[in-house]
Amino acid sequence: MIPIDILGTYFLACLVLAIVPGPDNIFVLTQSALQGKKAGLLVVLGLCTGLLFHTSAVALGVAVIFKTSELAFTLLKAAGAAYLLYLAWGAFRSGAASIDGNGISALGSGQLYRRGIFMNITNPKVSIFFLAFLPQFADPARGSLAIQMLVLGFVFILSAILVFGAIALAAGSLGEWLSRSANAQRWINRLAGTVFVGLAIKLLLTER
C-alpha cells in the first residue's frame, strides 16, 4: 500500500496541476459561464469520468500505445480537435438563450455529462501525462503496480473534482449574473467559441 505521507505529497501536487490553466479547467470555465454552474458541475463529472479511462489505460499499459504509435496519437487528437471546433461553431451560432432566468442550461444533463467525457478522453496527452506522472509515486516493492496506479488515479480525480468544481461554481455564478443581459450572453458565446478554436489548434499542434 502507498504510505500516507507519499499520498499526501502526491495529492498536493495534483491540486497544483489541476489549478494550472489547461484544456480541462478552461473548458469547465467556459461551459459554466455559458450554461450555468449546474451545467458546469455536470461537465466536471464528465471530465472526471474521462479520467477513469486514462487511469485504466495506464494501469493496463494501453497508454503506451498512444506514446509509441504516431497514428493512434494523431487520430485521437484529431477527433478531439474536431469536437472542439464543433463546440466553437455552436457557440458562435448561439444567441442569447444559453441560460434562462433561473440559471438553468438549455442543454440536457446527459448531453453536458457526455460533453465532458468526450472532451477528456480525446486528449491523448492526458494518458501520456498519467504514464509519466503516476509511476513516480509507485513502487513495485509495495505490491501490484496496477492497483497502485488505480489508487493514484482516483486521488488525482478527487483533486480534479475539488478544483474543477470550484471553477464551475465561480464561473457559473458569474455566467448566471451576466445572463440577465442578452448582449453579455452573445459576447460570452463569442468568447467561448474563440477559446474552443484556440484549444483545438493547440491540440492539433501537440506532439508526443
Score class of each variant (00 low, 15 high):
Ala79Pro: 03
Pro135Lys: 09
Pro124Asp: 12
Ser144Val: 00
Arg186His: 09
Ala160Ser: 15
Ser98Pro: 06
Gly103Asn: 10
Gly22Phe: 06
Ile121Ser: 05
Leu60Met: 12
Ala18Leu: 11
Gly50His: 00
Gly101Arg: 11
Leu87Val: 14
Ser98His: 08
Ile147Met: 00
Ile6Lys: 13
Pro23His: 07
Asp24Met: 08
Ile26Ser: 11
Ala59Pro: 02
Val126Met: 06
Arg190Leu: 00
Glu176Val: 02
Gly198Ile: 10
Ala184Arg: 13
Leu178Phe: 15
Lys38Cys: 01
Leu75Gly: 01
Ile201Thr: 10
Phe130His: 08
Gly172His: 08
Asn189Leu: 01
Ala96Ser: 12
Ala88Asp: 12
Gly143Thr: 00
Ala88Gln: 11
Ile19Asp: 00
Ala192Val: 13
Gly8Glu: 15
Glu70Ile: 07
Ser98Thr: 15
Val64Asp: 12
Val197Cys: 15
Thr55Ala: 02
Ala170His: 08
Ala33Phe: 05
Ala160Trp: 10
His54Glu: 11
Ile117Glu: 03
Ala166Gln: 11
Gly143Asn: 02
Thr194Glu: 03
Ser94Cys: 08
Ile2Thr: 05
Phe196His: 08
Gly40Val: 03
Ala184Met: 13
Leu76Arg: 09
Leu12Cys: 12
Ser109Trp: 15
Thr206Phe: 09
Gly8Pro: 04
Ala138Gln: 12
Ile104Arg: 15
Arg93Asn: 14
Lys67Cys: 03
Gly172Thr: 05
Ile19Lys: 02
Leu112Arg: 11
Ala200Tyr: 05
Ser179Gly: 05
Ala18Tyr: 12
Gly80His: 04
Ala13Cys: 13
Cys48Met: 14
Gly103Thr: 02
Leu84Ser: 06
Phe92Asp: 08
Cys48Ala: 09
Val163Cys: 07
Val28Met: 02
Arg142Val: 00
Gln148Ala: 03
Val126Glu: 04
Tyr113Val: 06
Gly103Phe: 06
Gly8Arg: 11
Gln111Gly: 15
Gly22Thr: 01
Ala79Val: 06
Phe11Val: 06
Val195Pro: 09
Val197Leu: 14
Phe196Glu: 13
Ser32Tyr: 00
Phe92Ile: 01
Pro23Gln: 06
Leu205Arg: 13
Gly116Pro: 06
Ile26Asn: 04
Gly101Leu: 11
Ser181His: 10
Cys14Thr: 13
Asn25Gly: 08
Thr49Arg: 01
Thr9Val: 07
Ser69Gly: 04
Ala97Met: 12
Leu169Tyr: 05
Gly172Gln: 03
Thr55Arg: 07
Ile167Thr: 14
Leu71Gln: 03
Asn102Tyr: 07
Leu199His: 12
Val195Asn: 06
Leu15Cys: 12
Gly165Ser: 04
Ala13Met: 14
Gln31Gly: 00
Lys37Cys: 03
Thr122Arg: 03
Tyr83Gln: 07
Leu178Ser: 12
Ser173Ile: 00
Thr9Pro: 04
Ala182Asn: 13
Thr49Ala: 11
Arg180Glu: 10
Cys48Glu: 12
Ala171Asp: 02
Gly198Thr: 10
Asn120Glu: 04
Ala39Ser: 05
Ser173Thr: 11
Ile4Thr: 14
Ala39Lys: 02
Phe11Asp: 12
Leu45Arg: 03
Leu145Ala: 00
Met119Glu: 11
Ser144Phe: 00
Thr49Asp: 01
Leu84Met: 15
Thr74Tyr: 11
Phe164Glu: 14
Ser69His: 11
Ser32Glu: 00
Ala79Asp: 04
Ile117Leu: 08
Ile147Tyr: 00
Gln35Tyr: 12
Leu169Cys: 05
Val43Gly: 02
Gly95Lys: 15
